[in-house]
Design a protein around this nucleic acid. Structure first.
Lengths: 121, 121
DNA sequence: ACAACACTTGAACATTTGCTCAAATGTTAT
DNA sequence: ATAACATTTGAGCAAATGTTCAAGTGTTGT
């Protein structure tokens, strides 16, 4: 049943070649995977997640965001830049103030999904 | 000259107190937020995300997983432990081999949601 | 023009974290 | 019992990352 060929990384052979092949099919689009990982990573930091959660109800200026999540304006601004770049939040300028809000409702659905997962454990 | 208007964290006052209050309401359950962030963080690393994506079609043993994502058995095993702890994957022992699979379908839905977000940019 | 303000940005620092290597565990076969 | 094997685990290290502090940008009001 098992075949013996020269070992690549593991010492053992691949156990089920067809399953590995199928699995690799899901990994073909590497650029997309990195993009997905980046979105998840951004939501995976408490500070940034709190920013997102704060923005679910309404837009907020940077200072109010800092107050809401109990952080500093500088730290929040740094994180907002990352969220902006990934199009998780958008902003609107009004005089010297900048109001941030959530870019689209996929984010809200992501939050809901994760909550469902958590509530079951 | 300096101007002191009862400065809290920012020098400025909170601009919209009611909105900040609402925002804070979403942050009350800190334990839950940390749990959510942890799930996102786990999916936010390319290696781990690839593991999850590989497991979408079928269960795989550790060695085949390593082959699928082009990594080492040790590295994969380390990451699997984290995914196991967060109940993102489950496992089944068969002799000296261990087969991993996805714990529940919320994970698949998370992946779908993120893809929808990406496809729009 | 000047100062105050809301926000952004860069650099330095400490912490976190993923990978590698080596050793350990537990299972199966001889 | 010994050997081979699939997987796990711990320590060490380099790279990534979040926060802080200070300086910079652009806008408003005097």
């Amino acid at each position: 049943m098992k075949k013996i060929k020269s070992a690549p990384i593991c010492k053992i052979e691949i156990v089920d070649k067809s399953k590995v092949k199928k699995a690799k099919k899901n990994l073909e689009n590497n650029r997309q995977i990195l993009q997905m990982a980046n979105i998840f990573k951004l939501l995976g930091e408490p500070t940034r997640l709190k920013i997102i959660l704060s923005l679910i109800n309404s837009e907020l200026c940077v200072c109010d965001l800092a107050a809401a999540i109990d952080s500093t304006v500088s730290s929040v601004s740094h994180q907002l830049r990352l969220l902006r770049n990934a199009r998780l939040v958008k902003y609107r300028k009004e005089g010297k103030m900048v109001f941030y809000s959530i870019e689209d409702e996929h984010i809200n659905k992501l939050i809901e999904q994760v909550n469902e997962h958590i509530e079951e454990s």
